[in-house]
Design a protein around this nucleic acid. Structure first.
Length: 741
DNA sequence: AAGGATTGCTTTTTT
DNA sequence: AGCAATCCTT
């Protein structure tokens, strides 16, 4: 891919302050016409930045009203950041009127308004994975299936895959008896969801498609409303999301998507990077722009990542480059087991900490959540502050789910899943037998479990003790429901907590008990922060947040996270642990298919390209696997890294050496990359008028220098007319000062 | 009905 | 090894 001429780069950058921090390619991407645009870009190429500038550009240059813009991001966090940046760029709060969010959040909103067009309740609940499992278990029981042969989880996976491809129960392809059972379970599952007034995550995407396909006037309304569609991380869209985009953009064809095939890591949940090809077919007039400059990583890190990914077939080769020449080479290190791996990393973190890196600059990544334990233990031993992303997600903790279940019951008594969850919380003498009676009654009437209780109580079909217990629970809900209309969510929550004496239920004198109560209080704080939210909106919001959304940026702690959650983030220092066969690539992937292994490779690629300055890879010689300690082999991916880039490499013989070296901090220190100043205070090294020399471009004069983020952006006009104006990051030390005389 | 012991099974990855 | 579902005892 060729650059535009430097002349253009200078022109565009000088004409529009909005575009000043962009290079020529990015400017082009931002300013191309209104029609469909695909920006294909490598990691660290400023994809999201281009998207952000594009929005700001439309709002100012094209006078697009903010409310006509729909921007879809991958996480709520990305959405929040984008909105803030737009506000900053426009010097106003215009970002507030733009609809920016995830597909799921956007769909939840649309359904909240339009549900009755397709016979759905507007006050629907969103069922998460646990709820889905509970529903499926009920279904399996009702259909009298053998839960060994038809595992609820497996059925859910099949159903989810079908939904992602917009296949409804009647259309489920039946080729074997097993398929036939899945189809029946699917139909029954769907019916149960509807009886519960609930949608699952996949329904959130499927139902809007159904809405738009069946109600042209509704579609027309949203098409008009969202005249400009922008999508980040397009390679991770599934069929349903793609169809949604196509429906919305069919007329105006103003679609601007940003993608990187090499970062496609969600095929297991239906993402289909072939959507990029579909785009070319469905939009022949599509303008494609390739961004290949990387602003994040040093040359050596980028080289390693490129070498790794180049082994994948079926991709657009990208000639990625960075102006941050040189740098400390990535290193590979073998540890004896995961415990040693942990302390090795912890020790290196400690020594990095003395230099210009703070804890907050460092991230440790791994394939599976289970791997975090060994790392945590090492960090605790060495007193290193860390924060763990993801492991037990806040909203799936028992105590939180219990409290939410109470709230959901108030919102919607038909919700049998929540009913079963809390009918005996705290224990009030309603056990399995009683629950079975209630379930049977519910099935007879085709109503929810709560309704069934009312019926049973009226009929007096229960023993006096159970009857009292059930009555007690029903009374609670009956008290809370009318209270809801006059009270805020916060007041309702407090009432529930005190009526159930939840505090003493949860606190059992152990430290865990205290922490459970702290979690409940944390939930209360969440409610407190959004005092105006209705109960329905609050529950929706809670269902759609990801742990990654909660990351605050200026925390002085090392971040521990899975490679999947690392997408879209960057850190000066990155450790990737557990590079063993079976771990990364994961054994499941190896068994499954070469394509699955290719995805594992992309996953590592994503991780490696998160690193700005330093990258450490490690693996263990033995690893605990299902309880026993098994020897491991280093990941095949390590063999694909260039030898000259990666120092100190494994071999069977070195294993012994390493074992003897136990306790010696053996990470190579490496040369620092340019003069990246201390975190708290970034000083400018260049000023206007200063004379500088660049290795390739010769001498020139500094036009401008600005601090952006953690680095200094220097604009230089070179004396060689063919070179013209260029921008540099001082952190990569591309320029040296020349004294004039 | 509740709590404790036993068994058997599991691990990708997440909106 | 850890956890959930199941069994067993009170």
């Amino acid at each position: 891919m060729l650059f535009l001429s430097c002349y253009n780069e200078a022109m565009v950058s000088n004409t529009h302050p909005l575009l000043r921090s962009l290079n020529a390619q990015q400017c082009e991407a931002v300013t191309v016409s209104d029609g469909p645009v695909l920006v294909l870009a490598g990691p660290g190429s400023g994809k999201t930045r281009v998207l952000t500038h594009r929005i700001a550009w439309m709002l100012t240059e094209q006078q697009v009203p903010p409310w006509r813009v729909l921007a879809v991001t991958f996480t709520n966090k990305a959405a929040r950041e984008m909105r803030e940046r737009i506000d900053g760029m426009l010097d106003s709060a215009g970002g507030r009127d733009i609809l920016i969010g995830t597909f799921h959040a956007m769909c939840a909103r649309i359904l909240r308004r339009e549900a009755d067009w397709i016979g759905l309740p507007k006050d629907y609940l969103i069922f998460d994975t646990d709820d889905q499992l509970a529903v499926m278990k009920m279904v399996v029981k009702e259909l009298g299936l053998d839960d060994k042969r038809y595992r609820p989880r497996g059925l859910l996976n099949a159903i989810s895959a079908a939904k992602n491809e917009l296949i409804l129960p009647p259309d489920y392809p039946v080729r074997t008896y097993h398929d036939e059972v899945v189809a029946r379970a699917y139909a029954r599952y769907q019916a149960t969801l509807r009886n519960n007034n609930a949608l699952d995550f996949d329904d959130l995407l499927v139902e809007p498609v159904r809405l738009f396909r069946s109600q042209p006037e509704v579609l027309a309304k949203y098409r008009d409303r969202f005249r400009y569609l922008l999508v980040d991380e397009f390679q991770d869209t599934n069929i349903a999301q793609y169809v949604l985009l196509r429906l919305l953009s069919q007329d105006h064809r103003s679609l601007f998507v940003v993608a990187d095939e090499d970062q496609s890591i969600y095929s297991w949940r239906g993402a289909d990077y072939r959507n990029i090809q579909r785009l070319h077919t469905d939009y022949p007039e599509l303008v494609e722009i390739l961004l290949v400059e990387n602003y994040r990583s040093t040359q050596v890190i980028l080289d390693a990542a490129r070498a790794l990914i180049s082994h994948n077939v079926d991709r657009t080769p990208k000639d990625l480059f960075t102006r941050k020449q040189g740098g400390a080479p990535p290193t590979v290190r073998e540890a004896y087991d995961e415990e040693e791996e942990g302390s090795l990393i912890a020790r290196e973190v400690q020594s990095l900490r003395g230099t210009r890196y703070g804890y907050g600059d460092i991230a440790v990544m791994y394939r599976t959540n289970a791997q975090s334990r060994a790392l945590e233990e090492a960090f605790i031993r060495q007193g290193i502050p860390y924060r763990l992303i993801g492991a037990t997600r806040f909203y799936s903790r028992k105590e939180i789910k219990d409290v939410l279940a109470f709230l959901r019951l108030v919102q919607n008594p038909e919700d049998s899943v929540s009913f079963q969850r809390v009918v005996n919380v705290p224990a009030r003498g309603i056990g399995a037998r009683t629950l079975a009676k209630i379930a049977a009654q519910a099935e007879r009437d085709g109503k929810g479990h709560y309704q069934a209780c009312l019926v049973l109580l009226a009929q007096g079909g229960l023993g006096s003790r159970t009857s009292n217990a059930v009555q007690g629970f029903v009374d609670l809900v009956q008290m809370w429901r009318p209270y809801q209309s006059e009270a805020t969510v916060m007041q309702l929550l407090d009432r529930i907590l005190s009526d159930t004496d939840y505090e003493s239920y949860v606190k059992d004198g152990t430290p865990e008990g205290d922490s459970r109560w702290e979690n409940v209080m944390a939930l209360r704080a969440v409610v407190e922060e959004a005092p105006l939210l209705s109960l329905a909106d609050f529950l929706t919001e809670v269902a759609l947040v990801a742990d990654i959304d909660e990351i605050e940026d200026q925390v002085e702690a090392v971040t521990l996270l899975t490679l999947h959650s690392a997408k879209g983030l960057e850190y000066p220092v990155v450790f990737i642990a557990g590079l063993e066969e079976g771990m990364l690539p994961h054994s499941r992937a190896i068994e499954e298919s070469p394509q699955a292994v290719a995805e594992e490779r992309r996953l590592l690629y994503v991780g490696m390209t998160r690193a700005m300055e330093r990258l450490y890879l490690s693996y263990a010689f033995r690893r605990n696997w299902y309880g026993n300690n098994e020897p491991a082999t280093h990941s095949r991916f390590l063999d694909d890294l260039p030898d000259d880039v990666v120092g100190g490499r494994r071999s069977r013989r070195q294993v012994q050496t390493t074992h003897q070296n136990w306790g010696v901090p053996a990470w190579p220190t490496g040369q620092s990359v340019g003069g990246r100043p201390e975190r708290q205070q970034i000083q400018r090294k260049f000023q206007r008028g200063q004379r500088v020399r660049h290795r390739r471009f010769g001498e020139g004069a500094v036009q401008d220098s600005q601090i952006e983020g953690n680095d200094e952006i220097v604009t230089v006009l070179f004396f060689d007319n063919r070179v013209g104006v260029k921008h540099f990051l001082a952190g990569a030390a591309p320029l040296e000062s020349v004294s004039e005389h």
